[in-house]
Simulated scan of single mutants.
Amino acid sequence: MTAIAFLYSSAFGLDLQGYFPYFAIGYIVWTVLLDSMSRGANIFVAEYAQISQIRVNLFGVVLKSFFARLLIFVVNLAVLVVALYFLTGPLQFTWQLLAGLFVLFVNLYMQSYWTSALAARFRDVPLLISNVMRIAFFLTPIIWQPDRVHDMLRLAFVGFNPFFYMIEVVREPLLSGTVANDVAIGAGAVTLVNLLLFVAVFRLLHRRIVYEAA
């Protein structure tokens, strides 16, 4: 992570002290997004031995897997915050950070459920997600900053990028202490779409997940 920050700050002519926290926080949040999208899509298939033999709450199965990934993310973020304190100075801590983390966690849980349910029915879903995430990393403002690209590119790769909003609801409060209105609106829209997908997949596939995961 440090090597990448040195490389891109030099390539883009950026101040390392300002760029490193931006990149590091974005990268840490991206890792939990990537893990949730890739590994999260295999929960029901991976847990088939358990869910097929005993009656279990499928939401609880998702929560167990989700909590393990969440714990790793929280530890990584805490270590990063401490490291940044000594490298670049203290970060901001406001109620908006807690709100941003809550929004992120809710979206990750809903996404883990509906992608896992779809993957139990369509086994190519994890591979499709993996390929999409490889491309999405470079199209999401993690190693680059939105204000340094053309307006049309910013609209396409930032305005309609759900990963950007999930990263920014955590990154902005830590860097500036507040969340911009457009980011808050975008995160709300992503949450709404995620909720609609969650409800739709629940209604269509929930009762068949045990049989589809076989």
Rank of each mutant, 00 (worst) to 15 (best):
R39S: 05
L192R: 08
I143W: 04
S116I: 09
L196C: 05
F67Q: 07
F23N: 07
I142R: 02
L7C: 01
L101G: 08
F137H: 02
V29D: 14
Q145S: 04
R148E: 08
L70H: 11
G186P: 00
G177F: 00
G60A: 07
E47V: 14
L197S: 10
L101K: 14
L196M: 08
Y27K: 03
L175Q: 12
V32G: 00
V158M: 15
V149A: 09
T2P: 00
W30C: 04
F160G: 07
V199R: 01
W114K: 11
I143L: 07
P90W: 04
A68H: 04
I129M: 10
E172Q: 15
Q92T: 02
L34H: 08
R207E: 10
N107F: 10
S112N: 15
F102Y: 14
A180T: 12
M37S: 10
T115K: 13
T94R: 04
N107S: 14
S176Y: 14
V75L: 10
G60Q: 06
W114G: 09
Y22V: 00
V201R: 15
L63R: 05
I167N: 09
V169M: 03
I142T: 01
V199C: 10
I54C: 01
F164T: 15
L97N: 11
L139Y: 03
I129H: 04
L84R: 13
S38I: 11
